[in-house]
Nucleic acid binder design. Structure first.
Lengths: 210, 210
DNA sequence: GAGTTTCTTGGACGATTGTCAAGATTTTTC
DNA sequence: GAAAAATCTTGACAATCGTCCAAGAAACTC
């Protein structure tokens, strides 16, 4: 086989892989919408297909089984949120500004991405029962922890004092706050988002020694 | 109808009601075990019946439908945990003792009641999707919040300084800590419980001003 | 443009689900 | 202890589930 032919085959193969991966992402995206609407327990492959432009059979062409699809969704979800506050961290000039912008960002995504957040909590809880989800969920949780830690440590630096808690504790705190906010928001409490905003601002101040 | 006959009928009726309620509680208890093992999404009525001494048909004699059974389980769960720390609150002589005992209690129940806790998080998350669960879940969540608040406010009193956060925020924080601990504990991290203990002790100190 | 591969469809399958009802069994009533 | 009421078992039902497959449509190769 000539070098040219080999290169050519590689290019083609790569193109096929890309197309395959692209369609997988499309289907995972469509699945995310349905999952976020119905939750893990009530979502079937047929329902996912019906809410997309594909048939239910095609799902098994791109995914080994249901668990494979769900895990792809979980990974896809990661992209939605992990870099959400990086802009804020990079451009903030003062501790106060960072604190305000972060709290406002939390409230905004609680209001706008409600369904996606509840899906995350759903899938994370499923990982407590299904061992096959654990690794991927743990990895995403860790990346969320790092995201929070970037904010907290940058805040501490701008404030001129070291953080008073570890990355794990900081994440656990804001995650707990957010989840409570989500529960209230979804039960019809229209003030839940602004309460979350106030609470986050308050707590961020307490997470650095002073 | 004589007064005696009326009284008699009432007594009988009450006995029947009690028996009915008692068996409902038995069945809900059995259902709790299976639910805690498999999670909401994977638990069927037949599976629940199989793990009990009854047949699957009897479930529909005591419960209108599956949702009715699940809600009875949620309510039953409430009794397990709401008064868990009241003894500690009542007998603690100093802020340090209360803090230590509370943190130790958290770690203990994380280790010993693992499955029941993950069921609670599962059902609470389901309430984000199923409106019919929302009222009961919110009520239990509120009672857990009050439980945490009894501890925090008693700690603040013993420490001689007012709490630095509201009841909602205090609960959100400890709930977030506990959930992270549960995730780690169930993924095989044998140090999760003692880490939770240390984190809870650390944070309790920070939740009062001064 | 024929031949080959890749992609997609829609139906069929066996298993499982929640629900229900008819009948057997037990408990209660008088 | 017979009649009545309650409790419980068993089997059946329609629906839905994940999975698989044969055949058609589309894309690609030479």
């Amino acid at each position: 086989m000539t070098q040219v032919a080999e290169k050519n085959r590689d290019r083609i193969s790569r193109r096929q892989v890309d197309k395959f991966a692209e369609r997988r992402a499309q289907l995972a995206d469509a699945a995310l919408v349905t999952l976020a609407e119905l939750g893990y327990a009530r979502t079937s492959l047929r329902e996912i297909a019906q809410n997309s432009e594909f048939s239910h059979g095609v799902l098994h062409y791109y995914f080994r089984d249901k668990a494979d699809l769900i895990m792809a969704c979980v990974r896809q979800y990661n992209a939605y949120c992990v870099t959400r506050y990086d802009q804020i961290v990079a451009t903030s000039q003062s501790a106060d500004e960072l604190k305000r912008d972060f709290a406002a960002g939390l409230a905004k995504t609680l209001r706008e991405d409600t369904a996606m957040h509840r899906l995350w909590y759903d899938l994370r809880t499923q990982s407590l029962f299904e061992q096959s989800f654990q690794a991927d969920v743990a990895e995403i949780d860790k990346s969320l922890e790092r995201m929070i830690w970037r904010i907290v440590s940058q805040f501490a630096e701008l404030a001129g004092s070291p953080p008073a808690v570890s990355a794990e504790v900081a994440y656990a705190i804001f995650d707990g706050l957010f989840q409570q906010g989500l529960l209230k928001h979804l039960s019809g409490d229209t003030g839940a988002a602004s309460e979350l905003q106030a609470h986050a601002e308050l707590l961020m101040g307490k997470l650095v020694v002073g």
